[in-house]
């Protein structure tokens, strides 16, 4: 989790520096970065209890089994 946070901080610092140099408004991007950081941390924190594969299986496997005549 600490590594993810460090990676995000490095990326955000780089992007903010880039946007300042190109006079791009920073505010909307920083909000999005914050959201992504929190989402990543949550995803990683619950990685043992929650796998993306399980969600896909629950949502789409029944449709697929019908279409594949299983």
């Amino acid at each position: 989790m600490i590594i993810i946070a460090i990676a995000y901080i490095v990326i955000i610092t780089y992007e903010v520096y880039y946007m300042k140099r190109h006079s791009v408004p920073i505010k909307p991007y920083v909000v999005l970065y914050g959201f992504m950081l929190i989402a990543s941390e949550i995803l990683y924190y619950f990685k043992d209890e929650f796998q993306l594969i399980t969600i896909i299986k629950v949502l789409f496997a029944p449709i697929e089994s019908i279409l594949l005549f299983k």
């Binding site: 880039y18 909307p28 992504m36 995803l43 993306l52 594969i53």
Partner: peptide, 25 residues
């Protein structure tokens, strides 16, 4: 999101995808 530039989004999106990949299976 009505943002003018897409370039500054690429690295954070990629970081998010990498975390998703770790949690994929």
């Amino acid at each position: 999101l009505k943002l003018k530039y897409s370039k500054p989004l690429i690295y954070p999106i990629c970081a998010f995808i990498i975390v998703s990949t770790i949690c994929l299976a």
